[in-house]
């Protein structure tokens, strides 16, 4: 009895010495969850995508040669999706970085401002799409105002096309990038700005030489995340765009194939979506790897 107890203790300490503690078992439910709800569906979907018209990679070939039964231009949607997601993520950043930088020290009313900024995010894309249709549509307020002021002679086409979807994507994506950037900007040690200004740097020089380099890692992360968000766009593209042609996006193709029972094609489209995102993310993180990523503090606090 005593020996076995001792042995058991030895085994225990052997396990602990390798950095495993009994608490490790607490991750088990999480691992199970991942396997059941993430890894299994991914493998299932991957497997399904290889069961196209004539098996193997035929579903992928069909995608790239535009031979899906319910989509005449499936390959084109890959470029459409990228053409929507990349600029919208970029525009969000270009808007969010300077505003977050200005607000990094906190300004009177910054809470109210963040609340207002967050509203489009909480309302959801359908609500935003409806609002934009009434505001920017051919008979919307903006066009009526511009016509009334004689600034234009026929309504601007801001909805039902590429522009409409891009505006909607920027509007829903901006709060997200802004909040992320505000966090990064507020994390920069304020004494660095003060040190730079005493050394002779004006506000512009401080932004370009101190704050922007320290924000770059955060900028890349924000870009990556808002790109991923915009890439899966579906409601905005359908409601504000023209999903029969110019703003037909990948998720729409997948939806179309899926709802017509063509699961292999839908899965192949989903895999292509994932790979396209991964390629963009890989490029972003490759750039990020070459940047300074250390602390944003100027020394002991």
């Amino acid at each position: 009895m005593t020996t076995s107890a001792a042995e058991r203790r030895d085994l225990g300490s052997w396990i602990r010495a390798r950095g495993y503690t009994p608490t490790v078992w607490l991750v088990l439910p999480g691992v199970l969850f991942m396997v059941v709800f993430f890894i299994y569906p991914v493998i299932y979907g991957l497997n399904l995508s290889f069961q196209g018209r004539s098996g193997g990679i035929s579903a992928y070939l069909d995608f790239f040669t535009n031979q899906f039964p319910h989509d005449s231009g499936s390959f084109q949607t890959l470029w459409t999706t990228l053409a929507l997601a990349l600029p919208s993520a970029l525009i969000c950043l270009v808007l969010a970085v300077p505003i977050a930088w200005r607000l990094r020290r906190g300004v009177r009313g910054v809470r109210v401002l963040t609340a207002i900024v967050m509203i489009p995010m909480t309302l959801g894309s359908v609500f935003v799409a409806e609002a934009l249709n009434t505001l920017l549509g051919p008979a919307g307020w903006l066009n009526r105002l511009l016509l009334m002021l004689n600034l234009i002679h026929e309504p601007l086409r801001l909805t039902g096309n590429f522009t409409g979807v891009l505006i909607a994507l920027v509007l829903t994506g901006f709060p997200f990038s802004f909040l992320l950037m505000l966090g990064f900007a507020a994390g920069i040690d304020p004494s660095l700005d003060r040190a730079a200004s005493i050394l002779g740097a004006g506000p512009t020089q401080r932004f370009w030489r101190i704050d922007l380099p320290l924000l770059l890692p955060g900028i890349t992360i924000t870009f990556a995340l808002s790109f991923v968000l915009a890439f899966a766009v579906f409601p905005s593209a359908t409601l504000l765009g023209n999903d029969a042609g110019p703003t037909r996006v990948l998720s729409k193709v997948a939806y179309q194939e899926y709802s017509n029972g063509n699961y292999a094609n839908a899965s192949a489209t989903a895999v292509i979506m994932a790979v396209a995102q991964l390629i963009v993310l890989a490029i972003v993180f490759l750039i990020r790897g070459r940047l300074y990523r250390g602390s944003t503090a100027g020394g002991k606090g």
């Binding site: 040690d189 004494s191 660095l192 003060r194 040190a195 730079a196 005493i198 050394l199 002779g200 101190i210 380099p213 320290l214 300074y292 250390g294 602390s295 944003t296 503090a297 100027g298 020394g299 002991k300 606090g301």
Partner: peptide, 15 residues
């Protein structure tokens, strides 16, 4: 102002 300043927490530019 053309001053120089040494801060309590150094405030060196980390990058």
């Amino acid at each position: 102002r053309d001053f120089g300043m040494v801060f309590q927490n150094y405030a060196l530019f980390p990058h």
